[in-house]
Design a protein around this nucleic acid. Structure first.
Length: 766
DNA sequence: AGCACGCCGACT
DNA sequence: GTCGGCGTGCTC
């Protein structure tokens, strides 16, 4: 009898053994997708291989047959199995879940080949509740319960009442929009059967709603034709190209200033791989950038190109995946998850903007696609190019240690000078309008730019009007009830919003603590900057891009077109305008508060600040005229700001490593952050303490530092109390052994009401 | 993750 | 009694 090793979609550390489906003789190929019985239910699984068992009878379990073959043809090449297994071990994540993440198709459903919209389940008031909605909002759920009893003789059980009450409160918080089902079940895990009954009774209604996909898909861009290469481009290609033919792992770090022509290097390298009959994989940090590179790659490789990112519909993704799998296409361009593309015979892997935090997946399997790209290149035996204008400190350190070959490009293609960067010290500079977010220098610069008929870009890192509400009498800062973070004032709809859980409430006019009416919005968000700009330059044509305005993809595209057409003079925006976009008539970039990230309790904050400043600086002067950048800051002498002025990466690297070395932070160590979260403070704290003492007991030779446990920097999020435990060690194996021990003892240490999640190589410590 | 089972306190 | 709210254990 043939037995199969199956990775099932359940949080199990090991694979399980299943037998041949009944009434089937042909063996099933490795990589095919099946449905298997697990306990009392059926789950999706992937066949990882055939098991050769001599004495099956001595096994402590009874082998069940595979219930159904969901997809006959293998979804991934067998060569990827060692990668999956490595990931499961390294990130301490169940193997079946690793495959589910790596293969972003939904073969579980009947029609995975049809194009389908991305859906989520939402709850809204049903017919019975709808007529009573105003009563419910004004007088609470009890009034509704009474009404249902009187008019329909419906009696709700206590748990159902509780569910209804919970629904009503969330519903009101979300301004009476339909509520994501998960918002309810996350706060009240037992809600599912109650919701079902409330829906049956017609009190609530459950519908599938289409999730609006990423708004950035098709940024217009004129594809570049192969051009005369610069000397630097030639030199880089001459180093890289020979490694494509050998089939050896060769990692490169390509450090090139913005505008140095990295894209052309990528294109020619990929072309070379194709000429050798091999394939190529290109990763970009986010879809907005994928769209930009997409046009270049499409112009060059046309039908040979596949695109893989989360903005695709299931159907599109399925088609792209199969095209790659079958060898119909040889070039894959995509975001994070494209690192799992089922390519074979890879000639080169390219990771653009390798320093970007977006390569780290922050939920579920917390992998870093940049690191996996390097690993995949190693397993495959091919070159990998990590490209960036501001390499991550860790990657640059590797190049200093000769683990990576460093390639440097220092001149811009069109010989453009880098923009002139001026730093404005907000602590000492006198301001004629101290009530505004603008220094006189910035006001003057915007006015001048406006006068010249050029465009300005103003960068703010927070959306909304004011990031917090302060009582001027007692100093109280309004916080979200579910999250312990300050509420942001949004002027547009005049509400206070939590940026972590999305809950909203009306603006308070009196302080809830001391009842003072002197409660005001403090701090600067993008809405406020927009308002001030309109006040300062009433004649200017102004637009704002942040995640509040860009939810509508059409709006985003319209703004981009208007900038292109020079119908906008001043663009205000958050992170999303820092990357990629290049418009020749933007000559001025203003950074409203450059050091805002430096206060974060995170060892990477200086690195991020430097990269961000370098990035926004790159937005200025992409045309004929030399750009100008004005950086407002309260920390004008901080090295990340001073050194960003001349884009002096090497000096930054030296300063940053000098800070990290004595503290033993990466690259001088590896980190693992262990997070505990749950609804009850006591339990979470206890689980964290138990885990810490278990680890300290396991490990006594002092090679691993165990820091904590302590409440997370964001100690409460979406009603969940959060604690964390940080492990730090120069020895990856030791660190790993400890995590494995903890992981296998997880159930004994950590009650099921507390979630423990292990974040290996954390990108974000919050 | 689900799902069953079993325990315990708080009500009809 | 028995309902609802946990905690625990298992899945080839």
């Amino acid at each position: 009898m043939v037995l199969y090793e199956v990775a099932v979609d359940a949080p199990l550390a090991t694979t399980l053994t299943y037998s041949q489906p009944v009434e089937r003789v042909d063996p099933l190929p490795t990589g095919c997708c099946v449905r298997v019985p697990l306990g009392k239910r059926l789950v999706v699984g992937y066949i990882l291989g055939v098991v050769h068992h001599q004495n099956l009878d001595e096994q402590p379990f009874t082998v069940k047959p595979i219930a159904e073959v969901l997809l006959e043809s293998p979804l991934f090449p067998p060569a990827l199995i060692p990668l999956y297994q490595w990931i499961a071990r390294y990130y301490l994540y169940p193997i079946g879940k690793v495959l589910r993440t790596a293969i972003p198709l939904t073969p579980g459903s009947r029609s995975s080949q049809r194009v389908r919209a991305k859906m989520r389940s939402v709850i809204s008031p049903g017919p019975l509740l709808l007529s009573q909605l105003s009563t419910a909002v004004d007088h609470g759920g009890d009034a509704v319960v009474d009404h249902l009893q009187r008019n329909y003789s419906i009696t709700l059980k206590p748990a159902e009442k509780k569910t209804l009450q919970l629904f009503l409160s969330i519903f009101c918080e979300h301004e009476q929009h339909p509520i994501d089902r998960l918002l309810i079940t996350r706060q009240y895990p037992g809600a599912s059967p109650r919701l079902r009954r409330l829906c049956e009774l017609g009190i609530l209604e459950e519908t599938d709603e289409q999730v609006i996909r990423d708004p950035f898909s098709r940024v217009m861009e004129t594809p570049l034709r192969p051009v005369q290469l610069t000397r630097e481009q030639k030199a880089v290609l001459e180093t890289v190209l020979p490694t494509l033919a050998t089939g050896n792992f060769s990692p490169f770090l390509l450090h090139g200033v913005t505008g140095c022509g990295k894209t052309e290097v990528y294109l020619q390298t990929v072309q070379h791989a194709l000429d050798l009959g091999k394939t190529a994989l290109i990763l970009v940090p986010e879809i907005a950038l994928a769209a930009q590179l997409e046009s270049h790659f499409y112009a060059r490789f046309g039908a040979q190109l596949a695109i893989l990112h989360s903005g695709l519909s299931d159907g599109q993704r399925f088609d792209q995946w199969q095209a790659v799998r079958s060898g119909k296409v040889s070039v894959v361009l995509g975001a994070r998850s494209a690192v799992f593309a089922p390519l074979e015979n890879i000639g080169v892997i390219i990771v653009d903007e390798e320093h970007e935090p977006a390569y780290k997946q922050e939920d579920g399997l917390r992998y870093n696609a940049r690191d996996l790209a390097v690993l995949r290149a190693k397993m495959t035996g091919c070159p990998v190019i990590l490209g960036s204008a501001t390499p991550s400190v860790v990657s640059y350190f590797h190049s200093m240690q000769d683990k990576y070959t460093l390639l440097t490009m220092t001149t811009r293609v069109k010989e453009q000078a880098l923009p002139l960067v001026e730093i404005v010290d907000l602590t000492t500079t006198k301001r004629s309008r101290p009530d505004l977010a603008f220094s006189d220098e910035l006001i003057r610069a915007v006015a001048e730019t406006l006068h010249q008929g050029k465009q300005s870009l103003l960068f703010v890192n927070r959306r909304g009007f004011s990031p917090f509400m302060l009582c001027r009498d007692c100093g109280f800062i309004l916080q979200c009830q579910h999250c312990h973070v300050s509420l942001t004032l949004h002027r547009k709809n005049n509400r206070l919003l939590c940026h972590y859980c999305g809950a909203g409430q009306p603006v308070h006019t009196i302080c809830p603590v001391c009842h003072s009416p002197r409660i005001t919005g403090m701090g600067i968000g993008s809405e406020r900057v927009e308002e001030e700009v309109k006040q300062l330059f009433p004649e200017a044509r102004v637009a704002r891009l942040d995640s509040d305005t860009a939810v509508k993809r059409n709006y985003y595209l319209k703004v981009l077109q208007k900038i292109q057409a020079r119908e906008i003079d001043i663009l205000i925006g958050t992170q999303m305008i820092a990357k990629g976009l290049h418009f020749p008539h933007i000559t001025l970039v203003g950074v409203i508060w450059a050091d805002s990230g430096l206060g974060m309790p995170d060892y990477k904050s200086a690195e991020r600040t430097f990269a961000l400043l370098a990035q926004v600086t790159g937005r200025a002067g992409r045309g004929e005229d030399r750009g100008r950048v004005i950086v407002q800051t309260y920390q004008p002498h901080h090295y990340s700001i001073v050194l960003a002025q001349n884009q002096d990466y090497q000096a930054f690297f030296t300063s940053e490593t000098a800070v990290r070395r004595p503290l033993g932070y990466p690259p001088f160590s590896r980190l693992v952050n262990i997070r505990f979260s749950g609804l009850r403070e006591k339990q979470v704290e206890e689980a964290a303490r138990q885990s810490a003492s278990f680890l300290r007991q396991q490990h006594q030779h002092g090679q691993v530092e165990i820091l904590g446990p302590s409440p997370s920097p964001l100690p409460k999020l979406k009603n969940h109390i959060r604690w964390q435990l940080l492990l730090k060690s120069p020895s990856s194996p030791l660190l790993h052994a400890l995590c494995e021990a903890l992981s296998s003892e997880k159930k004994r240490i950590c009650p099921s009401s507390v979630t423990m999640s292990i974040d290996v190589d954390p990108e974000n410590m919050m």
